[in-house]
C-alpha cells in the first residue's frame, strides 16, 4: 500500500497529537493560539472542539510563564505538549526547558519524571529576519537530559511526535514551517494509531556507495535532490535522515561512512559547534581509518540571517552546495 496514500506534515502532526490525546487523558496541549485560533500553523486544528478548553489551553504571550506551568504539570504527572509559535520564542523559556525540565530526573535521583514535549517550527522560514530564523538543534542537543527530534516526512512527523508524547522524559520537537504543507506518501502502517518510531534511530532515506550525506529536517529533501543530481553524474550518494539529533545515531552514521569512506554533513544552523561538527567528531573518533576524504560540512552562513531574499538564499545551504561538496569529496584527477 506504500505510495498509495499521501499526507501533509501538518496533518501528520495534527493526527499524532489527536490520537495521543485520545489514548491518554493525561496528554494536553498548551500554547499561544492553539485553541480558538486552531493554531498559528493549524497544527492543533479541531482539537479544542474535540477535547475542550481544559485540554487545549490558550496561553498569554508569555513563554517564560506558560512553559514553567507546563513543566510543573509534568512534574505532577500530566503529559503536556507545549507549542512554541516558533522555537525562536523558546529562548524566553530556555531556563524552564534546560534547568527545570532536562535536569530534574537526574537531580531528584530519578524520583521526578518530566514527560513533556516542547514543539514548534524551528529554523529559517522565509523572510523573517535574523531573530526568527534560527535553528536550535545544536543548542538543545548539547544538553544532557533532553531528547531532540527533527522530523522530515509525514511518517517521521507522526512516528516521532507520538514517540515524543509517550516518552517519560522531556523532548524538544523541532518542526519546519516550510515542510508543514508538503505532502509525503504514507503507509498504512504509519497511519495506524499504534504507530511509533524509535527515538535515537536514524533512517537511511537512500542507499548509496560513494558518499554519505547526513542531515535532518528540511535539508533531507535537499540532500535527496542532490543525490539525484549526483546519480546523473555517476556518483552514488547515501542519504541519512537523522530523525533524532539527541541521542545521535552514531552507529548508523559510522556504518555508512565505513561503507562509502566519504562524508558530507548538512544543516541550516550555524557551522560552529553545530550538529555537523558533532557528526564530524564522531566519525573522526570512530572511523578515522575509513575516511578517504576530508569531511565536508555544509551549514548556514556564520552570520545573523539576512532579511534580503537574495542574501537569505546565500546564507542557507542549497542543493547545489551539497552537490559540489559531494563532488569535492569524491574528486580524483584524471
Amino acid at each position: 500500500a506504500a505510495g498509495a496514500k499521501e499526507m501533509t506534515v501538518r496533518d501528520a502532526l495534527n493526527s499524532a497529537i489527536d490520537e495521543e490525546m485520545s489514548a491518554d487523558p493525561k496528554v494536553f496541549v498548551m500554547g499561544e493560539e492553539v485553541g480558538q485560533y486552531q493554531g498559528a500553523y493549524k497544527i492543533t486544528k479541531g482539537l479544542l472542539e474535540k477535547y475542550g478548553p481544559e485540554r487545549v489551553y490558550d496561553t498569554p504571550i508569555t513563554e517564560a510563564g506558560f512553559t514553567g506551568i507546563g513543566v510543573g504539570a509534568a512534574y505532577a504527572g500530566l503529559k503536556p505538549v507545549v507549542e512554541f509559535m516558533t522555537f525562536n520564542f523558546s529562548m524566553q523559556a530556555i531556563d524552564h526547558i534546560i534547568n527545570s525540565a532536562a535536569k530534574s530526573n537526574y537531580m531528584s535521583a530519578g524520583q521526578i519524571n518530566v514527560p513533556i514535549v516542547f514543539r514548534g517550527p524551528n529554523g529559517a522560514a522565509a523572510g523573517v529576519g535574523a531573530q526568527h530564523s534560527q535553528c536550535y538543534a545544536a543548542w538543545y542537543a548539547s544538553v544532557p537530559g533532553l531528547k531532540v527530534l527533527a522530523p522530515y516526512s509525514a511518517e517521521d512527523a507522526r512516528g516521532l511526535l507520538k514517540a515524543a508524547i509517550r516518552d517519560p522524559d522531556p523532548v524538544v520537537f523541532l518542526e519546519n514551517e516550510l515542510l508543514y504543507g508538503e505532502s509525503f506518501p504514507i503507509s498504512e502502517e504509519a497511519l495506524d494509531s499504534s504507530f511509533c518510531l524509535p527515538i535515537g534511530k536514524a533512517k537511511i532515506e537512500r542507499e548509496g556507495k560513494d558518499v554519505t550525506i547526513v542531515t535532518f529536517s528540511k535539508m533531507v529533501g535537499f540532500a535527496l535532490k542532490a543525490a539525484e543530481k549526483l546519480a546523473e553524474e555517476g556518483i552514488s550518494a547515501e542519504v541519512i535522515n537523522l530523525r533524532s539529533i539527541r541521542p545521535l545515531d552514531r552507529a548508523t552514521i559510522n556504518a555508512s561512512v565505513r561503507k562509502t569512506s566519504r562524508l558530507v554533513t548538512v544543516e541550516e544552523g550555524f557551522p560552529q559547534h553545530g550538529v555537523c561538527a558533532e557528526i564530524c567528531a564522531s566519525v573522526v573518533e570512530e572511523s578515522f581509518s575509513y575516511l578517504d576524504a576530508p569531511v565536508e560540512r555544509i551549514a548556514g552562513a556564520d552570520v545573523p540571517m539576512p532579511y534580503a531574499a537574495n542574501l537569505e538564499r546565500l546564507a542557507l545551504p542549497q542543493i547545489e552546495d551539497i552537490v559540489r561538496a559531494s563532488k569535492r569529496a569524491c574528486y580524483r584527477s584524471k
Binding site: 578517504d292 580524483r332 584527477s333
Partner: peptide, 12 residues
C-alpha cells in the same frame, strides 16, 4: 595520488 591536491586516496 589523484585526490584533491594530489592526495593519495583509496582508489589510488
Amino acid at each position: 595520488g589523484t585526490g584533491p591536491e594530489g592526495r593519495i586516496v583509496k582508489a589510488d
